[in-house]
């Protein structure tokens, strides 16, 4: 998987693409943390539109992002979640913890 970062005015957009599994999540976790540490955003948006597969490894990634943003007193929005990933998030009840649109 890949993460593409765009930032402006303390808004950080991370576009995720490809397959998010245990194999890819370790690097993704590091990249996400580095991007957040560099931008110190007020608002973080994870755009999932190009994610082709996601399992529970993606949940840990999203919860990590949420935790980081809480430390920065900022907000997290997860958007454009494809069908399969949405069902994974729903099965885990992540919608109660994270804003998904």
């Amino acid at each position: 998987m890949e993460i593409h970062a765009k930032s402006a005015d303390r808004n950080l957009l991370l576009e995720l693409s490809g397959e998010i599994d245990h194999h890819s999540a370790r690097n993704a976790m590091r990249e996400l943390e580095m991007a957040v540490d560099a931008a110190l955003p007020k608002n973080l948006v994870l755009d999932m539109s190009r994610v082709t597969f996601m399992d529970s490894s993606g949940i840990a990634l999203i919860l990590k992002a949420q935790q980081r943003m809480q430390l920065l007193d900022g907000s997290l929005l997860v958007c454009h979640v494809p069908e399969q990933a949405k069902r994974v998030l729903d099965a885990a009840g992540i919608g109660r913890l994270v804003t998904i649109r």
Binding site: S56, S57, I59, L63, K64, V88, A91
Partner: peptide, 14 residues
């Protein structure tokens, strides 16, 4: 913290 403890729950639901 690399895992969320939801794997079995997802298997059950899918």
């Amino acid at each position: 913290e690399e895992r969320s403890g939801m794997g079995f729950t997802i298997m059950e639901s899918f």
